[in-house]
Simulated scan of single mutants.
Amino acid sequence: MSERPEFTVRNATMEDVPGVARVLSRAFFEDPLTEWLFPDPVSRMAKSARWWAAYSGYVFIPRGRVRVAVEDGPRPVVRGAAAWKEPEEPSMGPRALLRTLPNTVSLFGLRRLPELSALLREIGGLAPASGPYWHLEVLGVDPVVQGKGVGAALLDAGLSRADDDRVPVHLETNREENLAYYERYGFAPTGKLDAEGMPRAWGMLRPAP
C-alpha cells in the first residue's frame, strides 16, 4: 500500500503558473471539454497545458483566489489546484478570451473564437440567476496522487471560506460521474447544458449554511 504524500495547501503565485498548467492539463486530459477543445490526442497535452497556463497567468492567479496543494520534499511539486471566484467579483465569461487572446488565437485560430465565446456564454447560463455566491471555477488533481486527499483538502479550504461568508457555492462539471462526488459535499444539480455541437455540462449548487 503506497504512503499518503505530505502536502501543503497555500495561495498560488505567478511562479506556480507552470505547475498549475501541468496539473490541470494532466487532470483534464480525458475531460469532455478538453476533448472538444483539442480533439487530437497526440497534441492535446501540450496544447491544453498552454491553454491552462494562459488562464492561470492572465485570469485565475492575478485575482489571488487560486489555491494549490504542493507535495512537500526537497523539490516541492504542485499536485492540485483550485480556482475560486468571490461573490463580489464579476463573472469573466467570454471576456476571459480577451485576456488570453494571443494564446487563444494561436491555439484555435480566429475561426473558433465565436464557437468558444458561445460555449462560455452557455456555461455561464448554468450559474444562479441572483444572489451572491462563491464559484469554484476549476478543481484538478494530478492523476499520480488521485485518492490521496489532495482534492478534498483543496475543496474543503474553499468551502470553509464560503461557509464563513454564509453564501452558496456554484460549480460546473463536464463529467456526469463527478455529480456523485460533489453531492457528498452538499452540492445538488441545478441545470444541464446539452446543446448540439457542445460538450455537456452540469451546474451544481451547495446552499449557504
Rank of each mutant, 00 (worst) to 15 (best):
V141F: 03
E35D: 08
D163I: 07
G57I: 12
S106D: 13
D72F: 00
T13V: 03
S43E: 13
A153G: 07
N103G: 13
D72Y: 01
L159P: 11
A83M: 13
E30Q: 11
L98F: 06
E137I: 02
V78K: 08
E122G: 14
A83S: 12
G73S: 07
E137P: 00
L119P: 04
P76G: 12
E35V: 14
L120Y: 06
R44E: 01
K85D: 15
D164N: 09
A208R: 02
P102Y: 02
S2Y: 13
E86V: 12
S25G: 11
S2M: 05
P90F: 01
R112E: 02
V66C: 09
K85E: 13
A152Y: 10
R44G: 08
W51T: 02
G124L: 02
R79M: 15
W36L: 04
P87R: 04
A82W: 15
M204I: 03
L101K: 05
G131F: 10
V167M: 07
G151Y: 04
F7N: 09
W36Q: 04
R75L: 13
S106K: 11
V150E: 03
M204Y: 09
N103Y: 02
G186F: 05
R121D: 09
L139C: 11
W52L: 00
H170F: 15
A157Y: 05
S48Y: 04
F187P: 02
F7M: 03
Y58C: 10
E137V: 08
P94L: 11
G57D: 05
G73D: 12
V23L: 15
E177H: 09
G186C: 05
A54G: 00
R63T: 05
G147R: 02
E6H: 10
V169G: 00
D163Y: 03
L179T: 11
F187A: 01
E3Y: 10
E172Y: 01
M14L: 13
A96V: 01
L171G: 06
R79L: 15
W84C: 05
N178K: 06
P39R: 13
L113I: 13
A195F: 14
G158S: 07
R166L: 01
E137W: 05
M92G: 00
W36V: 04
P87M: 01
G19Q: 07
G57A: 13
G151C: 11
N178L: 15
R121P: 14
A69W: 08
R200Q: 10
V141L: 03
V145R: 02
R184H: 10
E3T: 09
S160R: 15
R67D: 09
L136H: 04
P132Q: 14
R121Y: 08
